[in-house]
Design a binder for these strands. Structure first.
Length: 219
DNA sequence: ACCCAGGGTCATA
DNA sequence: TATGACCATGGG
């Protein structure tokens, strides 16, 4: 089984996912920070709160007291830490000169800069690169490790960077890499949600010849 | 009542 | 470099 075959099976099963949910690049970036180890349904509530207070804006977030911001972020969990991380990110964003200035940076530079922000790790940075800046970066998350590991494509203990390069090389020379990587990550999450997460069978589901829940993908 | 979620940082050894 | 503690809400 190849990375392309896994993709084809996922796409056949779940169809296009239309990621990232978010109306602007900045909203995508905020969502990427807020969704760290957190269910998206909780993040949505926090983003609604920000919009309600006209606070989905880097300058507003910067000038909002941490305690106020944390109160708006409460539904997304880790609200004190995330308030600080959002402020760190917005300070970086404004200091860099905003969206237009950031868009002019090449991908490697932009990635390094994102990783300088305290609160932005490799996955959050890659979410932002792919879904806010349309850069051809493959996002590695816990689901990706689990899935590819269970399919015996990888060991599962490789470093983030090793896995990212493996996936990017493995999907090689495609024109449309951005669209492919976009859909691939979203499909893995869709698969995790619909099959693997809500049942004790999740650990084996993807590898069974016939899924006990009736799913027929990834054989 | 327990488990998990679209991670990351920091202290310790 | 590698492991563990910590952050915290909400749904299954």
């Amino acid at each position: 089984m190849t990375l392309r075959q896994v993709y084809a099976a996922l796409y056949r099963t779940y169809g296009p996912q239309h990621w990232w949910p978010g109306e602007t690049p900045f909203e995508v970036m905020v969502g990427a920070v807020l969704t760290q180890n957190t269910a998206w349904s909780n993040v949505e509530k926090a983003i609604v709160n920000l919009k309600t207070h006209d606070a989905l804006d880097p300058a507003v977030i910067t000038h909002t007291p941490a305690r106020t911001l944390a109160a708006w972020l409460k539904p997304s969990g880790y609200f004190n830490i995330k308030a600080r991380r959002l402020k760190n990110f917005c300070a970086w964003y404004l200091a860099a000169g905003g969206l237009a200035a950031l868009q002019r940076l090449d991908t490697a530079t932009l990635r390094r800069e994102l990783l300088r922000v305290n609160g932005v790790g490799p996955e959050t940075a890659d979410d932002i690169l792919l879904y806010a800046f349309q850069r051809p970066v493959f996002v590695i998350d816990a689901y990706t490790r689990r899935l590819f590991s269970r399919l015996q494509l990888i060991d599962g203990e490789e470093s983030y960077e090793v896995l990212r390069h493996y996936c990017e090389k493995g999907l090689g020379r495609a024109t449309g890499k951005v669209a492919l990587f976009n859909e691939y990550h979203a499909l893995i999450v869709a698969h995790a949600k619909s099959v693997c997460r809500k049942t004790p069978l999740c650990a084996a589901c993807c590898l069974r010849r016939r899924c006990p829940l009736g799913h027929e993908i990834l054989r």
